[in-house]
Write a protein that binds this DNA or RNA. Structure first.
Lengths: 200, 200
DNA sequence: CCACATCTGTAGCGAACACTACAAATCTGG
DNA sequence: CCAGATTTGTAGTGTTCGCTACAGATGTGG
């Protein structure tokens, strides 16, 4: 039944380049011309492989969260809630100022507000951020069960808090904050988690 | 010397409408057609009055920060660093879920990442956010001098922290978080400031 | 070697974008 | 009432956007 001409580029490598363009310019700010040039392909190849611009974004987000998934597992593997928060936020301070990537976080830079016709892009990003928050929440629920968090503390609220700080750090990073500034933010932020720690 | 035909609309009222459009769709997502319709004017009036799209954004940002300036002064008028943080973050939880406005904060929704040709829009927003941070920092410096913050605490880091949480809350609000969820984040966040409070 | 299926590059599609030329309309100063 | 100045609405401008038609290229199955 004939298999046809094989694809002439590596989809994952191309996605890495697309990720970077979305990361730097946002969904609406990234043009197909910029994307195809970065990916080293022509528009028809892009559309044959990913459907349309939004499909390409989703594929890039999938790859992004997949790559970060391993790191998130290291984070929640920390022994205490406090250390989970510390690993998470200190790691973010590092990652979001890594010169190998655009500053900030793709899940924020990708597009917080979009124009008519792209309304679900912000939702798409929010859903991916919510995944991280859920992982944190589950970890904090365990921490509470283990007596690592106070009886009065709310794991879901704590997870939301850490997630909010992470997002805030991302925005700061994208607007020029350096690594040391982010570390200071993380350091202060962890103290709130510490205040929730303990047996009582 | 003849004064010419007077302007047929109120610039501030028009700016309020423009603010809302930028707030909801971001700088790049907002089209001139949407802006002029919301403002109740035609394109030539817009360009005669504000220069171009970016000029309109700056005017809208000026108005936004001016309107919030009064509130910020109430915030820093709180008696202690802890209460400053609490008023700020609890007030933000309220404001960012006020149905009278789009959710979130214009200084974030306006545009975190932009395409080629609008690179300075994110800088413009960051500069306005930095103003708030500076106000907080100055207030925390005073708090430290008054013995309201520990000798070991860093007022600038604390201001950056509160500012980061505020931004994070804004992003959460824009993606659907309700008032109670934001209040919980604020409540946890304040505990980090509390940990820095005291004489020692 | 041939029929078929899929990918690739060229070139360009209609639509939407930010922005403006122009003339009619509306004011002030004399 | 008139001359000069400014604004307003109509109706576009050229450019760029996301996306695609089409034909040639490159593979597999028989």
């Amino acid at each position: 039944m004939a298999m046809g001409r094989p694809r002439g580029f590596d989809a994952d490598a191309a996605l890495d380049q697309a990720m970077e363009v979305f990361w730097r310019h946002g969904y609406e700010g990234a043009t197909i011309a910029q994307l195809t040039e970065a990916m080293g392909i022509n528009p028809p190849s892009l559309y044959a492989c990913f459907g349309n611009k939004e499909g390409l974004l989703k594929a890039a987000l999938d790859r992004y969260t997949k790559l970060r998934g391993a790191w998130m597992e290291e984070v929640v593997a920390a022994p205490t809630a406090r250390e989970v928060a510390e690993r998470m936020l200190m790691g973010i301070a590092e990652k979001q100022t890594d010169p190998a990537n655009p500053p900030g976080c793709l899940l924020v830079q990708g597009g917080i507000a979009c124009g008519t016709g792209s309304e679900n892009v912000p939702f798409e990003l929010a859903a991916r951020r919510a995944q991280n928050e859920d992982q944190l929440r589950d970890r904090f629920i365990r921490a509470k069960a283990e007596g690592d968090l106070k009886e009065t503390s709310d794991p879901a609220a704590l997870a939301r808090y850490v997630s909010a700080v992470a997002v805030g750090m991302g925005v700061m990073a994208s607007s020029g904050a350096d690594r040391e500034a982010l570390r200071q933010v993380a350091s202060v932020a962890v103290q709130a988690v510490e205040a929730q720690s303990g047996r009582e």
